[in-house]
Simulated scan of single mutants.
Amino acid sequence: MNKPIVIMNFTGVYDYESFSHNPKFAWIDCTHLQGVECYCDKDGASALKKVIENYPAEGIHFIDSGNYHYLTKFWTDKIHQPFSLIVFDHHPDMQPPLFKEMISCGSWVEDVIKTNPFLKKVIIIGPSEQLIKSVAPQYQNQVEFYSEQSLEQDTTWKKFSAEVISTPIYISVDKDVLNPQSAATNWDQGSFTLEELEQLLSIILKHEQTIGIDICGECPATLNIFEEEKEAQLDSAANKELLKFFLSTQSHAFQQAFKK
């Protein structure tokens, strides 16, 4: 099976991002789905699993705003071999869920840990020290964190470069890890530049086998059309750069999918 580039369009924002207007990309229209924004209920989860059932975890998946970051769980549920999850995010996404019967954009990492028997390791890169401290104690030993602040130190970069991951990996990138000059999101953002993010990704991709990738962090529409156009152009440029970066490290099939 080919490794597709998938666009999951919930908010309509990709309509305004020129990078996505490639006829070889697989578009999945999710604008009609109910019970899926931020919190995903049972019916919403069932509908989402159905719309992605014919697509593999292998590939690059654009999953709209950070409100839908929980989709990483649904994509990684398709992996049936030991793997590690690498998450770039300004938030750990390990908050205690408000509704136990729902998966949310703020608690999905915990859900993956609890439910996926193939998951061997989780590494989260870019959250603030304060948010890391809020993670429940029972997960502190199961998840390795590289905070935004710690990566300013040479010793942490050396530790990160020497990181040993003994399984194939799935990478999830929330663009809120980037500074506001590099991307526009609907959550508070970190301080990484695109170049710094790609440096970190390069360290991982140089040594590890990548199963699949997803990217979120789009900025949904506002009432200010001029601001919307500016944000869409900024995010489109960031997505295009990340896509080219990932394609340069991946197979010929990926590269052909990106060419018109």
Rank of each mutant, 00 (worst) to 15 (best):
P220C: 05
H21Y: 14
P82A: 04
I132K: 07
E227M: 11
S128V: 06
V112R: 01
I204S: 08
N179E: 11
P137D: 08
I125A: 01
V36Q: 11
W108I: 03
K260S: 02
L33A: 06
Q34G: 00
Q130T: 09
S172C: 07
I169K: 12
L223R: 07
W187T: 10
A238Y: 02
A47G: 00
E110H: 06
S18T: 14
Q250D: 06
Y170W: 12
K260T: 14
L194P: 02
L98E: 11
V6I: 15
L242V: 03
K244I: 09
M8G: 07
V164G: 02
F245L: 07
I5S: 01
L71W: 07
P220A: 02
K133C: 10
Q181H: 14
T185P: 06
F88S: 04
N54T: 12
T155Q: 05
F226L: 05
E218K: 08
I86V: 15
L119K: 13
Q256V: 14
I211P: 00
L201N: 06
D214K: 04
K50W: 12
K78N: 03
G66Y: 10
L243C: 03
Y55L: 15
V6K: 02
E163P: 03
C219W: 00
P127K: 04
Y14H: 02
L234S: 06
K259C: 14
N22Q: 12
K133M: 07
M8P: 03
A232V: 06
Y139K: 09
Y39I: 07
E218L: 10
L247C: 13
Y14M: 04
F160M: 03
P117F: 14
F19K: 04
K73E: 04
A136Y: 05
K259H: 13
A184I: 00
E229N: 15
C38A: 08
E208V: 15
M94C: 09
K50C: 13
K159P: 07
E58M: 11
V51I: 14
F246L: 11
Q199K: 11
W187L: 01
Y70G: 01
Y170N: 10
K3H: 09
D93V: 04
I63H: 03
K24G: 04
Q233F: 09
